[in-house]
Design a binder for these strands. Sequence first.
RNA 1: GUGGGUGUAGCUCAGGUGGUAGAGCACCGGGUUGUGGCCCCGGUUGUCGAGGGUUCAAGUCCCUUCACUCACCCCA
Length: 421
Amino acid sequence: MIQLIRGFKDVLPGEVELWQAIEKTAISVFDDFGFKEIRIPIIEKTELFSRSIGDNTDIVEKEMYTFSDRKGDLITLRPEATASVVRSYIQHKLYTSDPVQKFYTIGPMFRRERPQQGRYRQFYQINAEIFGIDSPLADVQLIFLLVTLFSRLAVPDVETHINSLGCPICRPGFKQALIDFLSKTKVKLCSDCIRRSKQNPLRVLDCKVPSCREAMAQTPSLLDFLCYECVRDFKILTDSLEHLNISFIIDKRLVRGLDYYTRATFEIQTGFLGAQSAVAGGGRYDGLVEALGGPDLPATGFAIGLDRLTEISDLQIDDYHKTPQIFIAALGQKSKGKAFEWVCSLNKTGIRAEMDFGEKSLKSQMKRANKLGASHVLIVGEKELTEGSAVLRDMMTKKQVFISTDAVIENVSRKLGALPL
RNA sequence: GUGGGUGUAGCUCAGGUGGUAGAGCACCGGGUUGUGGCCCCGGUUGUCGAGGGUUCAAGUCCCUUCACUCACCCCA
């Protein structure tokens, strides 16, 4: 037997209904907020990701699915969506008609990590990006959209964490202060953090090793180093969230793993996913459009982990499960053929109709109708066919009526149409 | 990449110290010659994750390997 690839998964009927419901809800929220869908490829040139995400991030260093195609070009299964959306925005010069653009996209991402709860090698994200808006109100709108969506999806107990990462003007000062601090405390840090303190000192901030957390309690706060604009923007962010009654936690360890983030960063966290706490994360990435060859335009966005969302949503999938409205139980060759025509016609008119294609007894066909959850069964045999009237049974009330076989489709649709299905 | 746990029927799981595989549910059929759910009766299902070793004999012991899973790491 051929098994699926490690870390990948099938979403089977029964669960798929929940995915559809979530996607549908998300699309309608995006619609309400004025976001347009954009569809981008799942493979890009490797260079796009190494340049946008950052060469010495874990994602680029050891998690990407990178191949050379038949011509020898290096291509990569996308580990995230933002880079592609930005590329598309630049390539099609979407900023010319209006620099302000709001996009969303839904689809699979690929990272070769060790699988565990809420983490797969192919996972799905719902992404949103806003281009061309400097104001932190754009970040607030994203957070508000997330909160709205999560409440429509009946997601319980989520926390909004926010932080500011500063900008190219003030971050270097903080970085230097942090490096100075780390060089004094190095002995107390774990081996990973000793390595990080050289390559990417900001990452030490969200290390989860207790001794590091303890050592970092005294760390200089990035918020103390912010320049005038960054402070002003962060204040607007927090004030606006308060005005919108969105509770949040200022989390100065919220650093995020991708190089391109600036200023506002945020994460929606939950306690229901084992070690995985983030269901959604995002932030501002003002330098990325220019860095990828576009004009100097600001941008901000988020990604929702759709797989994780399905695991914590309280939506009841039973509500989305569709059962047949009618099952046609036919006896004998002639009625079988007639039943098949009827099923086809009913399906065509939009009625969920089923039948048994084998030579089964009426009893076993009734069992099957019951198992499928059909609300009605139409019984037709030689007798009914010659007499021109078939039996329509209501599976709930057990009541049976005769209906003419001359106009079965009309009669059945009228009968079923009158009922709440 | 590192560590722990687990792999027996479609599913959930039993199978002291080695003796050629079980239950419940599900599925199929019958009890009702043309009427579902409840009940009763009967039936099917396994390369015991894979490969190798020890042994007269391995689901059981040993080695290797794979998968799943949880955690570290990192992230959505």
